[in-house]
Design a protein around this nucleic acid. Structure first.
Length: 515
RNA sequence: GGGCGCGUAGCUCAGUGGUAGAGCAUCUGCCUUUUAAGCAGAGGGUCGGUGGUUCGAGACCACCCGCGCUCACCA
């Protein structure tokens, strides 16, 4: 790691400190001392902002010669002796301020000379346009709001006549950008848009669901019994009860308990945790939206997903058409619908309804799929689907009717043996949602969970547990119910055209920094 | 976990075995409408870490740490 530790003596504030330090940081601490010696407040309490950079620039006629109060981080300082220009970056963008000794006063200008790129300042003054045509604030007052004690990895940028921004020496080290996202956000402000879009996407999901009358609820993160998905959990310990707790891997079983309890439509948008590997599409904690609606089935849910995604696209982006990694994708419904049986038959010629285990294995071998040897029929079919079909599901597509073995919480198909009423939505070859007609027969459910439990004993670490309380709830009566799960991170990845989950998560997990 | 690649100044990067470099940033001086401001000068390094090869290692070898891509695993 590039993290360094020094112990230095400056005779000042840094005496006997133990922290990352270099000449640039040392210099800033010295400036801090000098400013304090001048009775300058180096960390202020408040500043009343009344205007923002982009608004002043986009509505110049209204602001011209008017007094404004702006605040932001100094991103460029151009000193020309007794007058200077600075670029201030506020939450919306950047604006130039003109600092003239004659206007702000000798003392303030002297203090200004001790300010650095990265410092947060407030400026009060009037709006004008320079000789070169740049809309600026002519400062009458300049105050330091927060002294920055670390050099920020500043890049210079130039905007050409066409409005295209070119950045020089951009802060681009991926590791540092993730580890110090706060710096990334300062110096690469365009990424803020991805997170703003994420926020809007979640808001519009809520608006859609609330508009349908479904109730948002909160269910336990800490669970004595985990379930609702096949995954390895995180384990923690509750001291007072002296028992282990699992961090939830899904909301499903609690939400369906609420359907039992008489809520007809409930949803939750929350973090799930799975103790598995991390890569471009997997994060150990991720955000899931789950929705359960009583008296509906999976076909109804397909329509709902189409409407929901279309709603989000239109509200947030104003269109259903997206260019994702160079491919034109249209989320407008109706989406293509194809059964797993038909899609595999079309791509490989294999009829998974009649094929024997050996035939499935032979076909998988043709596609170079490595098997452990103990896969059941459903798992083999799923493998075959992933090998021959999944990557080709580019435009939004519902794939429906899954093998029963890999769907222990889904209702048996009303007339197709060995299958359940389940679908997943795919875009760009990636799964974006998973849904089914919920299994509401407690006797069937017990058999399925016990089969899972046997798998677990046979070594399947991700098999589900037999949740007796959930089975008890089901015995009281779960109405026919349609359920849905959407991975929010992956949906945001698609809609914002980001190829890594880490680029839609503000603080992605990293291995510890070593000193 | 396997394979490939990367790690040099605050940032972005050169440096193919012989005195550690550039641009920006920083510091000093000049400069009252500049804008990748300019001009003149200066400082700044455990070359990710530990061993090894060599007269000599930033470079070569081994191991370790971190990051990326990819495969495996996996929602």
């Amino acid at each position: 790691m590039r993290y360094k530790e020094y112990k230095i003596y400056t005779g000042g504030i840094l005496e006997n400190t133990q922290q990352e330090i270099n000449d640039l940081i040392k210099r800033r601490y010295e400036e801090l001392d000098e400013l304090k010696a001048m009775n300058i407040e180096t960390f202020a309490y408040k500043f009343d902002v009344d205007s923002y950079s982009t608004e002043i620039k986009s509505d110049f006629e209204k602001y011209e010669q008017k007094d404004v109060a702006v605040a932001g981080r100094l991103m460029a300082i151009r000193k020309m002796g007794k007058a200077s220009f600075v670029q201030m970056q506020d939450t919306k963008g950047r604006i130039q301020a003109y600092i003239r000794k004659d206007d702000v006063g000798e003392d303030v200008y002297k203090a200004f000379k001790l300010m650095d790129i990265g410092d947060i300042v407030g400026v009060k003054g009037y709006v004008f346009k320079t000789k070169m045509g740049e809309i600026s604030v002519h400062a009458k007052e300049l105050v330091l709001l927060s002294k920055s004690l670390r050099p920020i990895p500043i890049a210079k940028e130039v905007v050409d006549a066409n409005g295209n921004k070119k950045v020089f020496d951009q802060f681009s080290d991926i590791e540092l950008r993730y580890r110090q996202r706060y710096v990334d956000l300062i110096v690469n402000p365009e990424i803020k848009d991805v997170f703003a879009k994420r926020s809007l996407i979640v808001r519009e999901l809520r608006n859609f669901l609330d508009g349908r009358g479904y109730m948002e609820v909160e269910t336990p993160v800490l669970q004595q019994m985990y379930g609702g998905a096949n995954a390895k959990p995180f384990v923690t310990h509750h001291n007072a009860l002296d028992i282990p707790f699992f961090l939830r891997i899904a909301d499903e079983l609690y939400l369906k308990r609420l359907i039992v309890g008489g809520f007809d439509g409930v949803y939750e948008i929350a973090k799930d945790f799975r103790n598995e590997g991390m890569d471009k599409t997997h994060s150990p904690e991720f955000t899931m939206m789950e929705l359960y609606v009583a008296y509906k089935d999976y076909e109804w849910m397909m329509n709902t997903v189409e409407e929901m995604v279309e709603h989000v696209c239109m509200k947030v982006f104003g269109t259903t058409k997206f260019n994702i990694e160079g491919t034109e994708i249209d989320f407008k419904g109706p989406w293509q619908r194809v059964s797993m049986v038909d899609s595999i038959k079309e791509k490989s010629g294999v009829d998974i309804v009649t094929a024997s285990i050996d035939e499935l294995k032979t076909e998988l071998k043709k596609h170079h799929v490595k098997l452990e040897g103990n896969e059941n029929r459903g798992q083999l079919i799923d493998e075959l689907f992933e090998a021959v079909v999944e990557a080709d599901l580019v435009q939004p597509t519902f794939l429906y009717d899954y093998p029963i073995e890999i769907s222990p919480l889904a209702k048996k198909h009303k007339d197709k043996e060995g299958l359940v009423e389940r679908f997943e939505g795919f875009v760009m070859g990636r799964e974006i949602c998973n849904a089914f007609s919920e299994l509401n027969d407690p006797i069937d459910q017990r058999e399925r969970l016990e089969a899972q439990s046997r798998n677990k004993e046979a070594g399947d670490e991700e098999a589900q547990q037999v949740d007796e309380d959930y089975l008890r709830a089901m015995e009281y009566g779960l109405p026919p119910t349609a359920g849905l799960g959407i991975g929010i991170d992956r949906l945001v990845m698609l809609l914002t055209n980001q190829s890594s989950i880490r680029d839609v998560v503000l603080f992605p997990h990293m291995k510890p920094e070593t000193k």
